[in-house]
Amino acid sequence: MDFYTNQEMEELLEIEFKEYHFAPILAALQTVYLDSISTASSDIRKYNVHALCPEQLHKSLITVDTTSENFNSWKAYGFSDNLKLDLLIDEHKLQLDSLREEQYLIHTETGINQESLVRELVKFPFINKAQSVNCIGDGSQIEIVYFNPDFIQLIYSYGWGDCPSGCISRHYWELGIYGSGVIELISESGNELP
């Protein structure tokens, strides 16, 4: 629950940041800046795709018919002799990595919507199953609420307490970052920091 919906609203005149908060906040802002200039990230915002970890943007699993000439060509030479699949391979720089006899990990050079990719991959008759890779665990996250070239609004959350199973506690900072370099703390809420 947002702290401000549970308490009487009052104007904040001063917000104190402890020195040990600076590094995580700076890291969040640097991530947001890099995110704002990445072509792949603009597609993520455009299609409202969110991810909790980089693996979800770069990896998918497929189960294949290893007797297929198209698949064996892809595995050996990097192209499949299937025009539609070769366009996907070329566009997203799809790389195969063998896991087991019929199961392969697909890597993409840039972050893309892996859910959309796997929906396209299962249309090929020699790909029996495809799924995006999921992350295990939880932790600190950054969510872009609003973005334009002059202003980014984001929520940075810091999670702690048994995060491999899902963080028990979480603290939130909602920040506004202006093109001029000015950073505004819009609100702060959540559990008291450890």
Rank of each mutant, 00 (worst) to 15 (best):
D2I: 07
Y4F: 12
N6H: 13
Q7M: 09
E8A: 08
E10M: 01
E10F: 04
L12E: 10
L13D: 11
E14R: 06
I15S: 01
E16C: 05
F17S: 03
K18W: 01
E19V: 00
E19T: 04
E19K: 07
H21I: 00
A23I: 00
L26I: 04
L26M: 02
L26V: 07
L26C: 01
A27C: 00
A27M: 01
A28P: 05
L29N: 03
Q30M: 03
T31G: 05
Y33L: 04
L34K: 03
S36Y: 01
S36L: 04
I37Q: 08
I37G: 03
S41L: 03
S42V: 07
I44R: 15
K46S: 13
K46I: 10
N48S: 15
V49L: 05
H50F: 12
A51E: 11
A51L: 13
Q56V: 07
S60W: 05
S60V: 14
L61T: 13
V64Q: 09
T67D: 15
E69Q: 15
E69N: 15
F71I: 14
F71T: 15
N72C: 12
N72V: 11
S73T: 15
A76K: 15
Y77P: 01
S80L: 11
D81N: 14
L85R: 08
D86F: 07
L88P: 14
I89M: 09
E91R: 13
H92W: 12
L94C: 06
L94V: 07
L96E: 06
L96F: 09
D97S: 14
L99G: 09
R100P: 00
Y104G: 10
I106N: 02
H107G: 08
T108I: 09
E109F: 08
E109V: 09
T110L: 09
I112L: 03
N113S: 09
V122K: 13
K123M: 11
F124W: 05
I127V: 12
N128Q: 08
A130C: 03
N134I: 06
I136S: 10
I136L: 14
D138A: 05
D138V: 05
G139V: 06
G139P: 01
Q141L: 15
I142T: 08
I142G: 06
V145R: 10
Y146M: 04
F147R: 02
N148P: 04
P149S: 09
D150F: 12
D150Y: 13
F151A: 08
I152F: 04
L154F: 05
I155A: 03
S157G: 05
G159L: 02
W160C: 05
D162Y: 14
D162I: 12
S165L: 15
I168M: 14
R170E: 15
W173R: 01
E174V: 04
L175C: 11
L175M: 15
G179Q: 11
V182R: 10
V182P: 00
I186R: 12
S189E: 04
L193R: 06
P194C: 01
P194W: 01
